[in-house]
């Protein structure tokens, strides 16, 4: 759309590019802003570094990483919905306890669902499913967003954060599975002569890969 682009360029010349971008942000609906923010600008894994325990622990292969991302998104969505609904009833210091109990309830549901429908994954993920309860990402979103905003914004925010988190898990898992087994989703993709990097399967590989990834995101996407 050339007309729109021309208008944009004129606006930029008049009041500066940053201001135009800022006005654009303000004109967007609040829920969309929250949703997009979670995907990249405030990505849980690469930017805020919240919920590091599952990020490192379940990313040896792509499949458990994806399951973990889905479970976390489910819990995030449901707890955002419930916390947002009861936000006017919450009082002072009991607030955090209420968040934790809500999250624990949904984690129990997610755990039972996994046991019923994906028993192999449930065994593989083991205690890392119940550990979603203490994932700082979920409590953080409950405190920062759902306990203040309406249902729609909270759910959009939770969805954005959950998808961003899943994306982070999958990036790490893709790299590690490719290096460690030469495979994706258990299907060999590397050429026949590929020698497996066994260290990537070990905890050390998780730490070092994530460290380098953080360095790369800082280097290429650093805010001006």
């Amino acid at each position: 759309m050339p007309a729109r682009r021309r208008r944009y360029r004129i606006k930029c010349e008049l009041i500066g590019r940053d201001e135009v971008e800022e006005i654009k942000q303000l004109e967007r609906p609040e829920s969309l802003v929250h949703f997009l923010r979670g995907l990249w600008a405030e990505n849980a894994v690469f930017r805020q570094m919240l919920g590091m325990c599952p990020v490192l622990a379940v990313t040896g292969q792509l499949q458990p990483a994806l399951t973990m991302g889905a479970a976390t998104t489910f819990v995030l969505l449901c707890s955002a919905l419930v916390v947002s609904l009861m936000r006017n009833l919450l009082v002072g210091h009991l607030r955090i306890l209420m968040f934790t109990l809500t999250i624990a309830t949904f984690v129990t549901i997610a755990d039972l669902l996994l046991q019923a429908y994906l028993p192999e994954m449930s065994v593989k993920l083991g205690p890392y499913v119940p550990l979603i309860i203490v994932n700082c990402l979920i409590i953080g979103r409950a405190e920062a967003c759902s306990s203040r905003k309406g249902i729609f914004t909270s759910v959009a925010d939770a969805l954005g954060m959950g998808l961003g988190f899943t994306f982070g898990l999958c990036v790490l898992a893709t790299i590690r599975e490719l290096m460690a087994d030469g495979a994706l989703f258990g299907v060999a993709v590397m050429p026949a002569g590929f020698v497996n990097w066994n260290v990537m399967k070990l905890p050390a590989g998780a730490f070092i890969t994530l460290g380098i990834l953080l360095g790369l995101t800082n280097h290429f996407f650093k805010k001006a």
Binding site: M49, A204, G211
Partner: peptide, 23 residues
């Protein structure tokens, strides 16, 4: 330390090497 690795990046890499030692 390289600028981009300052903070969490270098800490994670250090942790990785420490894990190798603990093996």
């Amino acid at each position: 330390i390289p600028k981009a690795l300052k903070g969490a990046g270098i800490t994670l890499i250090t942790a990785g090497i420490m894990t190798l030692a603990f093996m």
